[in-house]
Structures are given as structure tokens and as C-alpha cells.
Design a protein around this nucleic acid. Structure first.
Lengths: 129, 129
DNA sequence: GGTTAAACCAGTAATAGTTACTGTTTTGAT
DNA sequence: ATCAAAACAGTAACTATTACTGGTTTAACC
């Protein structure tokens, strides 16, 4: 299954790269449609999955039942506003100590890592009330 | 909207309380059906949601696209086996330091807490190879 | 540059998990 | 015992995602 170039995939990749707001498949679809008016949603999903598989994107799950995609592939944490759902990157390093802390006295298996997101109220929602 | 007693809700609550494996709505449905053969899946969902809303259960999302329910409502961490999907409770305290660490220098809003789950390979899957 | 097989596509159907609706039954306060 | 509110069973609808199908694009090879 050798990878072949595709204009659609390139547009999808470029769109996600251009955004910092962790778009969902649907948002990608809406936007890439401006360049490819009859691109199919299936193509968007297939390519997002493919790009995530080859490590050019990261799929992030934030408990809202929708997959988000992130162009930044280096591990990092996220902040989610409970009010409006906006997602920000947090730029402090992954806390490896947390894994070893969890590992101490854990007899259930081997811990390889952790998934964390922080929640709260974003600046805009705080300002509103 | 005063709460009224219901035998079905009680059975659902008792079932989740009796288990430590964080069952999904479907698992609850399958099991409660032994006592209430024609309980509806909608009733299970409605009551799980209600019980979570009044704080008798916790809804946990582990990135597998299915909601799990946990009878332990005190905040605690979970371990998920990437191989077989089994979920264990981890009994070390919530690391509040993590929140303050994330908060330092974060201008995007107010951080109220974090959701974390640890992943790896469970004892049984390690033994298999 | 033409041929050709594999990758890819658009369009559509199917699936999984969950929520919403509808008409009937249960609950509990009066 | 009456009766309104809450809950129910059964079913339909919805959302996010994946799978299928027959046609199109890509790129390796002559």
C-alpha cells in the first residue's frame, strides 16, 4: 500500500496545519470544500486518519464525543473551556513524573503514558460573566 | 421535576455499584435485563445520565468512543489497557500540583481541574506476550 | 509519451452510540 | 381513591464515523 500524492489530501493537511484551534473532521470538510467543492466527507475522514497514522497529525479526544485534529505532533497538553468548548495548547512539558508516580505500587500492568486535558473557563467566557 | 422512585433505576444503580469494571450503557442493559426482561435501552441511558447528574455515578470517557460509568464518585485516576480495553481504578490521590503547574503562565483563562487516564498493557496482556 | 496497476476519489449506504418522541404505566401527595 | 407528575417501553431520529462501489488520478515502467 504505497502512498500516492493526492491534491485533496494536501489541501486537508495544509488546512489543519494553518489552524491552531484543533478542528474537527466536519470543520475541515466545510473549509476544504471552498477549494474542492465536491470533496466527500469520507475523503476528509480517510485522509485525516491516514495523516494521523503516518504521524503528520494527531487525533485528540477531549471527551466531547468528537475527534479533533492537531497539526502539532509533539506531545503537549490541552486546555478545554467547559463553557464554549474552545481548545488551547498549553506549552509546558509533559510531566513524566506523573507516570512514575502512577506506576509505584500499581500491580495491574505496565504504564506507558497518560492522556490529560485541563478544563476550566476561557478568558472570553470569564469576561462575559 | 421532583425525583420519583423507580424500580428500574434502582436496579441500574445497584448493578453499577456492584461492579468495578466501569460498565457501558450496553453492559448495564444486558445485565439489568435479567431482572427486567423488557426494560428499554432508553431507560438505561436516561437513568445513567440522571444518576450521573445527581452525583451518584460518574460518567467517564476514555477515548474509546463509549461512555463508561463508575460507582466511585470521589475523583480518582484510571488505567486503560491499550490491548484489551480493561479499566482499573488507580488509588493514588489526584495531583493538584499538576493544575497549578498548568496554571502558571497560562493567560487563556482559569483552570479548574484536569482529566487524566493512564494507558499501557495490563497484567494479563503482558503475560500473553 | 502511452499503458497499466494500484491508490484514491465522490457518492452513498451502513454502523454504533446516544438522544428524543409518544402513548401508556407507575408513583406518591392530597 | 384520585390525579398530576414522573417514569416507562418501544420506536424513531440523530451524530459521528466507517465501509462499500464503480469511476478517476497518480506514477512506475517501457
Amino acid at each position: 500500500m504505497t502512498l500516492k500524492y493526492s491534491r485533496q489530501r494536501e489541501a486537508i493537511r495544509e488546512f489543519v496545519m494553518s489552524r491552531h484551534d484543533h478542528p474537527t473532521a466536519d470543520v475541515v470538510y466545510m473549509n476544504v470544500r471552498r477549494e474542492f467543492p465536491n470533496i466527500s466527507l469520507g475523503t476528509v475522514y480517510r485522509n485525516l486518519t491516514l495523516l494521523a497514522d503516518i504521524g503528520q497529525l494527531t487525533r485528540i479526544r477531549l471527551g466531547d464525543g468528537v475527534d479533533h485534529f492537531d497539526a502539532i505532533t509533539e506531545p503537549h497538553y490541552h486546555f478545554v473551556c467547559k463553557e464554549c468548548g474552545v481548545v488551547y495548547d498549553l506549552d509546558f512539558p509533559i510531566l513524566d513524573t506523573v507516570d512514575s508516580e502512577a506506576d509505584t505500587g500499581f500491580e495491574g500492568g505496565r504504564i506507558d503514558g497518560h492522556i490529560t486535558y485541563f478544563y476550566g473557563k476561557c478568558k472570553d467566557c470569564l469576561a462575559e460573566g
